Simulated scan of single mutants.
Amino acid sequence: MRKIKELGEFGLIHKLSSQINFRASDSILGIGDDCAAYPVKSGKFEVISTDALVEDIHFKLSTIKPETLGRKALSVSLSDIAAMGGTPKRIMVTLGIPKKISVSFLEKLYSGFNEICNHFKVELCGGDTVSSPKCFFINVAVIGEAKRIFSRKGAKPGDLVFVTGTLGDSSLGLKLLAKNKTRGKDHKFLTTKHMDPTPRVKEAEILGRSKIDITSMIDISDGLVQDLHHICESSNVGAQIYEDRLPLSPELIRTCKRSSIPPLPLVLNGGEDYELLFTLPADGVKNLIRQFLKAKVLVTQIGKILKPGGISMKMKNGTLKVLPESEGFNHF
């Protein structure tokens, strides 16, 4: 087996890039030049984002396969494009590679990249490889297109708060991985939700194509409460959510019950759900529900937007609980 040093930077780039087989039909230049080049379509916005995953901060090499890591690295970046109502089109990947990383590991990592690129029809069109003194890291830049832009700013008092999918699964999956408890179908479902999330590109496209007045949107990466705070701060509003409407998976409910784990902290502050959290006026709800039912994807109203005054949760017993911002994930 050849070592990275034997291949050299450009030999490694050629070896890895040859594994990526999706190429956008409108690409002018892809991997192999100083820049990628493609035409810009009139009547659409370009949306651009970048995200980094760092060893021992976002993942542990001892608990995740390189193929899975490759899929997750791209998926979390595609989720940012979805959060803006966009469709991802191109990505660029930078790798920081320490000596402990093998060529075989990188080939498997790129196999994961290739799966996501093919599934979402996204072209990996360039990037960079650098040596790293200790930890392995991945930086992904993603470019997408959108007919309409959904941002965090725009929610108004009276709007309703919706979320796709279920909440807390990823956080509980991480907890199981940390305790090395991955037995049975429920555990596998939860750990997969953490290690191999699905970006809600399909759901974002439904919203983008519709005539529904989406007043604000964000993806839930740092936790429901913290990301709802981002919307409230940007829009200068408050919010109230309802405990009995928070969508929980059967797998989470069963696992929490068996292990005596309180589910609410996972659901409110766990993070890395990568679901879409968005607001809209009440007169758009029927259209929203109709389109999501037709697409067979889950969406749930979990609250409402209020005048400025923070975020609270109406508990099942009818009392109100103030939800502070700082309980979600924060790098620093």
Score class of each variant (00 low, 15 high):
T198A: 10
M313P: 05
K108W: 04
K41F: 09
E9Y: 09
A36M: 12
V93L: 11
T129G: 08
L276D: 04
A73G: 03
I81W: 10
L224F: 10
F105V: 03
D56H: 08
I48T: 09
N287K: 07
R148I: 06
G70Y: 10
L109G: 03
G96S: 08
Y38M: 07
L69M: 06
M92F: 04
E115M: 04
S151A: 14
D213G: 01
K321I: 02
G96V: 02
E9N: 02
K44G: 00
A82V: 02
F162Y: 15
F329P: 01
G154E: 00
L268V: 00
G96K: 04
V163I: 13
G11A: 06
G328W: 05
M1C: 04
I13F: 15
F45T: 00
L288T: 06
L61K: 08
T192W: 09
A36L: 04
M195D: 14
V161L: 13
R148P: 11
I31F: 15
F10K: 13
I241E: 09
A295Q: 09
L277C: 02
G70S: 04
K147A: 12
S75T: 02
I28F: 13
G70T: 04
K294M: 06
T129E: 15
L7H: 11
V130G: 05
V322P: 00
N317E: 11
V285L: 02
M92V: 01
S259E: 15
L61N: 10
L323H: 04
D222V: 01
G173P: 09
G85P: 01
I241P: 07
R23Q: 07
D219Q: 01
K316S: 13
H14C: 00
A37F: 10
G30T: 03
K89Y: 09
S234N: 15
E67A: 06
K307A: 14
V47L: 06
K188R: 13
N180H: 13
G158H: 12
A239M: 02
L160Q: 15
K153H: 14
G270E: 09
I101T: 12
I64R: 05
P247Y: 14
G168H: 12
I311T: 05
V103G: 07
L320W: 07
S171W: 11
A155Q: 03
K99L: 05
I253G: 02
H229G: 01
A146S: 12
K147T: 08
K72M: 09
P247E: 12
I143R: 15
I241F: 10
M195L: 15
P98R: 03
G127M: 12
I91E: 10
I220W: 08
L167M: 15
F22E: 06
S104V: 03
D34H: 11
T215V: 00
S170Q: 11
K99Q: 07
K296F: 10
I20C: 10
R290I: 01
I206V: 14
T300R: 15
E115D: 08
D128E: 11
K211S: 14
F45W: 12
L29V: 11
G184F: 14
I138C: 13
S210N: 05
I212M: 13
S171R: 11
